[in-house]
Each structure stands twice: as C-alpha cells, then as structure tokens.
C-alpha cells in the first residue's frame, strides 16, 4: 500500500474543498433552511403527521439524502475530472499507485465532505424542528455508506465525462429527479398502488427509507433490504472502477 500517496491525494482534495469552504457550506445550509421554511413551517403546519411523525421532522432524512447524493456525485466527479481536463492526470498515471489507492484518496475526500455537509444539515434542522434518532449507529452507517457509494458513482461519471456539460447532466437529470421521486418529501404509501410498485425500481427509495428508519423506526421498505441494496450498488460501482483502471478507459490512450 502506498499510504503516502493516499494521504497526498486526500489532502489535495480536502484543500480544494477548503478553498471553496464558504460556498460548500453556505449553500446546503441555506437551501435546507428554505426547505424547512417552505415545507416544514408553511405547508407542513397544514399537513397531518406522516407515519405518525411530524411532517417537519419526517422530511429531515430525505433532505440529508438529497444533499448527500448530489454533493457526493458532483464532488467526486469534479475531483477526478479536473486533472483530466487540466492535463495534470499525467502525474497520477505515471505514479506508483494502484487503483485502490487512487480511489481511497479521491472517494474518501469526496465522501468526507458529504458527511460533513449531512451533519451540518442535521444541526441546521435542529433550529426548525424537534427530532430524535432512534438508531444512531445505523444512522451513521447509512450516512457513510451512502456518501461513499455515491462518491464512487461520481468518480465514474468524472472519468466518463469528456466535457463540463456531461459532468453536470447526470446529477441534474438523474440524481435529483430520482431523489425527489424517491420519497424524500412523502411516504411511498401515499402514492397510488401502481406508482408504489414503480417506485420500488428507484434505488433512492431504499436509501431514503432505510435512513428514515434509523431516525424514527418507520420505513417504506425493510431496513435490511435498504442496507443490502446500497451495499450492492457500491459493489457494482467498485467493479466498474476496477475495470476502468485495468483497461485505462478514458484515462489512458
């Protein structure tokens, strides 16, 4: 293991995050506050409880997931796309590092940032609503696992993208809609029966549902299944990353 290389990449990426700290932190905190004002206070006050959880509290896990997914994907994709775009990737390719080390460095840094943002939202939410966390251990588990999985996913997007548009199209066109339709703001059981079935094909449903279970002990789908699905998706991403480095896909000529 080239531990020095992992540390160098991780630090480099965290320094990049640090340079844009204000916008990295300010924007999710601001948007979360807006969500709470609009959905929590204005609309939520007219809504009954969902699954016997106050609506304002009900949307917290979904909001965190929304940020976690978009931030992990865009962060990790940008992290690996940037050296490809600027040409500094030559150094990574000529260094005595294995794909595992590169991935730990880049994905680790992207996931770290996402987890920090997730926790920030959790803290911000406290100013608006009361909530409790029933299974804190599982909550942390879902948080980290999701951050890592979608950072891996973002890494793949970053390698695949050959322009800035492509870099943005996936988070915008796929991740955000899937998250909105994934039960961030409602329970799947509130949908018509047919849509409930269709929703089960949306992987984000499992994430949000499992995460919400760790807060309130209620869920749309079994929490174990949620965890298993996330783990499965992570393994698929790992497999793709391994293949990318083995073949040099879009990294080498």
């Amino acid at each position: 293991m080239n531990l020095y290389a992992i540390r160098a990449i991780y630090r480099f990426e965290m320094a990049r995050t640090g340079r844009t700290l204000m916008q990295s932190i300010a924007s999710p905190v601001l948007s979360t506050s807006l969500y709470f004002i609009v959905f929590g206070a204005a609309i939520g006050s007219r809504m009954g409880d969902v699954d016997s959880v106050n609506y304002g509290a009900f949307i917290i896990p979904g909001l965190i997931m929304l940020t976690l997914l978009t931030e992990s994907t865009s962060n990790a994709s940008f992290g690996i796309y940037l050296p490809k775009w600027s040409g500094t990737i030559y150094e990574l390719l000529s260094a005595p590092v294995s794909w595992i080390e590169v991935v730990i460095g880049y994905v680790g840094a992207a996931a770290t940032k996402s987890v920090i943002l997730g926790l920030l939202i959790l803290i911000t939410a406290r100013f608006f609503v009361d909530y409790h966390i029933e299974h804190p251990f599982w909550m942390a588990g879902f948080l980290v696992l999701t951050a890592v999985t979608f950072s891996l996913f973002g890494f793949i997007i970053g390698v695949w993208a050959d322009g800035f548009e492509k870099l943005q199209v996936i988070p915008l066109m796929i991740v955000t809609p899937l998250t909105f339709l994934g039960g961030s703001f409602y329970s799947i059981s509130m949908l018509p029966p047919l849509w409930q079935k269709i929703a089960l094909f949306n992987p984000v449903v499992y994430l949000v549902s499992g995460f919400r279970w760790s807060f309130y002990g209620v869920s749309d789908v079994n929490a174990g299944l949620s965890f298993g699905m996330t783990l499965g998706f992570m393994l698929v991403c790992l497999g793709i990353v391994w293949w990318i480095f083995r073949t040099g896909y879009r990294l080498k000529n």
Binding site: N2, Y4, A5, R7, A8, R11, A95, P96, V97
Partner: peptide, 9 residues
C-alpha cells in the same frame, strides 16, 4: 510536496 507523496516518499 504532493508529487513526493504521490510517489510514496
């Protein structure tokens, strides 16, 4: 310094 670390030193 990044380069040095990347090369495992």
């Amino acid at each position: 310094n990044f380069s040095r670390g990347l090369f495992g030193k």
